[in-house]
Nucleic acid binder design. Structure first.
Lengths: 232, 232
DNA sequence: TCACTTCATTGACTAAAGTTAAGAAATTAT
DNA sequence: ATAATTTCTTAACTTTAGTCAATGAAGTGA
């Protein structure tokens, strides 16, 4: 039940599969048509995601087609640093992105983003500097948005305004639930919940980062794990 | 600096001022024009809030005019219970609403909403039952939304789609920041932060509810306060 | 105003998390 | 493959939070 094993194999696979390698460290650029020739699965990812929230009409498909840009970043890339203005947001197609702050010389992980999640720094599109760092934990493939592109897209395709609003509201509801869950749990319950809801993540990222993500020190998480194993 | 005094006076005032009494426990109903005659300040509240995010055009003003409904609830009213379907969301004009869960017979406060905040249960507009209770801590005046009204409004006034999306994104960014702050703080820091960012709230709600809101037991918050006072 | 209830504080004790330091294991780089 | 580095675990000890129980203060209702 509880998977407390090594993550070496999984991370190796994640960083070496064909799908990932075919894009690594290359800016692919404006894209949908190009992508079709390169890898159909990226198209499918985006449409699969959107089809959860709306009917994919011919018109919508065209809107997506015209306005989807794909970028790829190598493992370890810092997408945004503290103090910087954020001009990009991402839809994560492949890989893992971590946001964190540095406090008293110590990294504190705020969030891990994985496939099909939207990564929007809280200062995105604003003139204020970022409080957070965003870093690629693995080789990453994303669909990129920026304020100018958004503006253009929303003007050309007003139906996307409504879709975005709906998706924003859904994401917000999920965030609220996560926050509530966090507030009403202790560290052990948070870890157990994470094993249940995001088991693959536990294998993909180092444990000391999970610790701060759960609001405890690495030593405490180590003890929590020990406790869990011994208690059954 | 640290306001650790009694909250009786403040609560008394909040529940007795003219503004509040003029609406108390009355469903005012469809509204903007009527409201103008009853109390201009409600109109001003809504327009003031929206003017932060957009230019108030004649058209927008009309859209608001047609689609704003006001309701008033007495202190202690439960707006939504666990297990219920949520069919209303609110924009809080006056008063305080608390969301909480009951776990092992114990109430755990998730959020306190006050003036100018949007109250959207995470199951609002969905077929799933609520995980939370929403309760009025004081007499409350809200602008009410429901899915049918929203649909109608957005169809009639597509420009509101965009405004709503923008506001949703801003609220989401704020929520993310709050969550990050919570994760990276210990209980004492959370309390100090609350005194700084929402000092009036500390006076308006009982301390044991603040405790669970900060993720600790009432006894611990009591000790934290003691520590803070003695440490300066 | 008095009785009743809820809420806040305190104390004694237990459990869990933070701190510091050391060493083992895993991962990465050469 | 080996060395260097990072990550994880363990231990001893300190600090803080949880638990249970008692008491006093504040708030509520008759």
């Amino acid at each position: 039940m509880l998977k407390l094993t090594k993550r070496f194999k999984l991370r190796y696979e994640l960083n070496n599969q064909d799908f990932c390698n075919s894009f690594a460290k290359i800016l692919i650029g404006k894209c949908y048509n190009t992508l079709l020739k390169i890898d159909l699965s990226v198209k499918n990812e985006i449409l699969k995601y959107l089809s959860k929230y709306t009917t994919i009409t011919r018109e919508l498909e065209n809107a997506i087609k015209e306005n989807t840009f794909i970028k790829s970043f190598g493992k370890g890339t810092t997408l945004l640093s503290e103090g910087e203005i954020s001009t990009e947001c991402y839809f994560l197609l492949k890989g893992c992105i971590r946001s964190y702050i540095i406090e008293n010389g110590e990294e504190k992980t705020i969030e891990f983003y994985t496939e099909e999640q939207v990564v929007t720094p809280s200062n995105y599109g604003k003139a204020t500097p970022s409080n957070y760092y965003f870093e690629c934990m693995e080789n990453v493939i994303v669909s990129v948005g920026n304020p100018e592109l958004e503006k253009e897209t929303f003007q050309k395709h007003p139906q996307l305004d409504s879709l975005s609003r709906v998706i924003a509201e859904i994401i917000m509801a999920k965030n609220q639930d996560s926050f509530a869950k966090f507030k009403t749990s202790n560290p052990e319950e948070r870890y157990l919940n994470m094993l249940k809801t995001r088991p693959e993540l536990v294998q993909r990222v180092p444990q000391h980062q999970i610790a701060s993500y759960l609001g405890v020190k690495p030593e405490s998480l180590s003890r929590i794990r020990k406790r869990i194993i011994s208690n059954k």
